[in-house]
Design a protein around this nucleic acid. Structure first.
Lengths: 247, 247
DNA sequence: CGTTGCGTTGAATAAGGTCAAATAGAGTGG
DNA sequence: CCACTCTATTTGACCTTATTCAACGCAACG
């Protein structure tokens, strides 16, 4: 048993890329898998890819082949209409899965763009299908990941369809804060990786409205804003913006 | 071989409910499966459920157990916010799959309400997981169905986030028309099953705006409106409303 | 030190929302 | 079949919100 162990220790490539060693394994695909099963994942996820700020992991219309797990960094996904208007459909950080939009038509239907220098794990989709037929827990988990993406989008529809500008921004900030928290970062202080225009696009608002609303929140003592650096000063206050009558 | 055949012929229950006999098999779960494989589906989908107008197939927070394929009729799915505001997240007709929102948290996250007397096929989720490990094409197809739901919601986000009222209504009517067409109904004449308020909720508009915009389309000769009965008179005209500057 | 991209702020405007009233149907019970 | 009720729809007048257009400030960078 010591020989294989040694082999592993000196296999720097495997060590570096292995799901079994990944700090994100609790929130990414390996969730719920046994050590043995995670080792099978290691054979599937054998490529990492660096993506520089501004570059895409995939683009709309491109042939679908793999899913991508965000290893580090920050992404946006966008749709583009024929007339050039575009819409940000999501922001994605470590542990999030990208590319599931491509399965249905075997080609991607949105662009995934890095907002900072980032890294993704490439998950060949055919291999994932195979493995999830073998490993029940993986199948189950993969289905959950897709389902949660559906639920996340329901939430965005609620936001876009029934909330006022202030509510949208408050919900946006609280959601970001919560996601940073669950990744071990500060719940109350973070740097936005996206511009006001990208926030606006995501929330169905113009960038000026985003800026003005941030300023108003600051006047009200709810947050501190310095360019991209945000401090949440009154989290409960922000929550109470949600569902409150215009005031 | 003739004995089993005879048995099938006289098994009215199986005959009535079988996927293998279903007129929707080209657009529902059985898509792409061989005759043998569809027979396996028949063992999985052994219940149909009638849902009367106004009743729910499932409600938010309810324990998740099954998916539902719309056999006939018309449904809406809705989310409800704490303060009572609600948002229609989709309209669903024959061949559509309901309930995939429930997989992720093992409980449903929206309500599925019949807008007319309807019927659904109950697909026990555990059985679907099992079968899709056995039948590769079924696994593949199920993943496609979920992925397409994600893409559909992307489309709604685009609509809610970047379109004006007229564009939303035009896109809505064209989408309905296309879906009726692919089910063999007239592309240009149909009855809306939902109220103006429900359309408005789905599109992020108030019912008055929906009504006014329908009236404007009628004045412009694009459609004919008599209450819930819609005739599309100028489909190209409707398409050109999309992406056109306010005018 | 000018350039460039991003962010803030103000004033005017338009799109859609709100409130209110009138109308039209659908369903019900006599 | 008719009167009645209830709900959905249409339409008008007015108002609020967010957008548009424009100017200016700031920070990063070559």
């Amino acid at each position: 048993m010591s020989a294989p162990k040694l082999a592993k220790v000196i296999d720097i490539h495997a060590l570096k890329n292995a799901c079994s060693n990944c700090s994100l394994r609790e929130m990414c695909l390996p969730t719920g898998l046994s050590a043995d099963e995670i080792e099978k994942l290691d054979q599937m996820v054998y490529t990492r890819k660096r993506v520089k700020r501004g570059d895409s992991v995939y683009r709309s219309e491109e042939k679908f082949g793999s899913l991508y797990a965000v290893r580090s960094g920050f992404f946006k996904t966008t749709l583009v209409m024929e007339d050039g208007r575009d819409q940000v459909t999501g922001f994605h950080m470590a542990g999030d899965m990208l590319g599931m939009d491509g399965i249905g038509a075997d080609q991607h239907s949105c662009n995934a763009v890095a907002l900072e220098d980032s890294e993704v794990c490439v998950i060949p989709y055919g291999r994932l299908e195979e493995l999830s037929r073998e490993i029940y827990v993986l199948q189950q988990h993969f289905h959950k990941v897709m389902s949660r993406e559906i639920v996340r989008e329901h939430g965005v529809m609620l936001l876009l369809g029934s909330m006022r500008a202030e509510e949208r921004l408050a919900a946006f900030l609280l959601n970001l804060s919560q996601r940073f928290t669950s990744r071990g970062y500060s719940p109350s202080e973070f740097n936005l990786r996206m511009t006001r225009e990208e926030i606006g696009s995501y929330l169905g608002l113009k960038l000026e409205t985003v800026s003005r609303t941030f300023s108003k929140f600051q006047e009200d003592g709810l947050i501190g804003v310095q360019q991209k650096f945000i401090r949440i000063l009154d989290s409960d206050g922000l929550k109470s913006v949600l569902g409150r009558d215009p005031s």
